[in-house]
């Protein structure tokens, strides 16, 4: 068990992550934590969902166990499995079990990517039972008060296949995230990437323009994360246009015409 304790400590966040609140999301999340309700974060990619979870974990002084979900994620990947070690079957906790035992925050990133039958395993954890049955061991774990479950997904993908089941989503307190207002976003880029305010403002403007290309074949525009990356590149001495092209336009699309159009935007702005 001490090994477990050591492992969970690695998930603690010691220094305060930078997070600029855009609304009352922190108050809602704190209240949900106090009530033992699970949290659902939705919003486009790179808008600060994961950063918010890090901040929340730091704020609540709980370790944060993050699982990036994918379509091959099985129940035992979450809960745990027996492994054979030197001729013996040894049980190993999965990240979810580990988080429940330690009273940590378990954050399932992009939960819609996981198979539907896998998501069902969180159901008893996500309602007032707050239990995790580990069938293979015949164990029923009850989550301590400190434990919190959080999931995130991106509703922008708009695929019938990739939607949360109603029975899953109705267990959560949902927080909707979006790209911050231009001023705030500029402040974030400014702080995170260490660029000057006017450059940050122009980068945000560029992001706004790419977000307007939805009807022209760009499903998602540049995220705040991309802007920060761009800013960092610029900070390392890459020229603004090259950085924008490398970190924004090329990252967003392969389409020649859209690339050309974004080049025009970049040359207009800088």
């Amino acid at each position: 068990m001490s090994g477990q304790q050591l492992r969970i400590d690695e998930y603690r966040i010691e220094t305060e992550p930078y997070y600029l609140a855009t609304g009352d999301e922190l108050a809602v999340a704190e209240a949900a934590y106090a009530d033992g309700s699970p949290l659902l974060l939705k919003g486009p990619t790179g808008c600060g969902k994961t950063r918010f979870m890090e901040y929340l974990a730091w704020y609540l002084k709980r370790p944060l166990v993050t699982v990036s979900c994918h379509d091959d994620l099985s129940t035992s990947d979450l809960v745990g499995r027996y492994l054979i070690r030197s001729g013996e079957a040894v049980w190993t906790d999965g990240p979810l079990t580990m988080a429940v035992r330690a009273g940590a925050i378990c954050y399932l990133d992009e939960v819609v990517e996981a198979r539907k039958d896998t998501t069902v395993v969180i159901h008893p954890l996500a309602d007032d039972r707050r239990q995790l049955p580990i069938e293979k061991r015949g164990e029923l774990l009850t989550a301590p008060n400190e434990f919190m479950l959080a999931v995130s997904y991106n509703p922008g993908y708009q695929s019938v296949l990739k939607d949360l089941k109603a029975s899953t989503r109705q267990r959560f307190v949902a927080l909707s995230f979006d790209y911050p207002e231009a001023d705030m976003e500029a402040e974030i880029v400014c702080t995170e990437a260490g660029v000057d305010a006017s450059l940050a403002k122009s980068l945000v403007k560029l992001a706004g323009m790419t977000r307007g290309l939805k009807d022209s074949g760009l499903p998602e525009g540049a995220s705040t994360r991309l802007l920060i990356q761009t800013g960092k590149l610029i900070g390392r001495g890459i020229s603004v246009k090259t950085a924008c092209r490398a970190a924004i336009s090329e990252a967003l699309t392969d389409d020649k015409e859209l690339l050309a159009a974004m080049d025009e935007m970049i040359s207009s702005l800088f």
């Binding site: 790419t210 074949g217 015409e257 025009e264 935007m265």
Partner: peptide, 15 residues
């Protein structure tokens, strides 16, 4: 047009 139309859409944030 292929280049200019998305540029304009991006500027305006709509078609």
């Amino acid at each position: 047009r292929g280049r200019l139309q998305p540029y304009v859409n991006g500027l305006a944030g709509r078609e």
